[in-house]
Amino acid sequence: MEERALSSEHDDDGALTPLHPDHIKVLRINALLMLLPVLAGVIVLEIADFAPAGLFAGLYLLVAIFILWRIPRRRYRFKGFAMSGDRLRVVRGLWWHSDTVVPFGRVQHIDVDQGPVQRYYKLATLTLHTAGTHNASVHLPGLLHEEALAMREEIRAHIKRETL
């Protein structure tokens, strides 16, 4: 399960920079916001009283703990990025693993987005857009906002240099 062992070679398969630890909190809060509407349903089911009392509530609690505690931590652990002089590598996922490299020379434009929760923790998502049909936009969440801005400037400077 410890997939980090894989990444011991040089260059494009090398070590990854982890995301900011607060990213876990953002993932948890977003998960909580998703879980709340379901809670309403569970309460209705409990009141309707056609199953042993506490069955749905218990199930909900188990699922909620898993979704709120375990999954964000695991998702965080398997996310990472590596930025070198001319390319950005974004890695994510345990079971659905994806490992993407975008050369700066192929970037069409760059977004730095902040959701409301991300803003509270001063985090941001960096998105690189390419002309490719597949992976037209590559998202890298969980960066400190200043760091994301700095990365954007660096990538942009690179694009400019290449174009001129």
Binding site: H97, S98, T100, V101, H134
Partner: peptide
């Protein structure tokens, strides 16, 4: 080419 992704699902992993 514009980008390169190495993708794996549970089985291929």
């Amino acid at each position: 080419l514009q980008s390169v992704e190495i993708a794996q699902g549970p089985l291929s992993r």
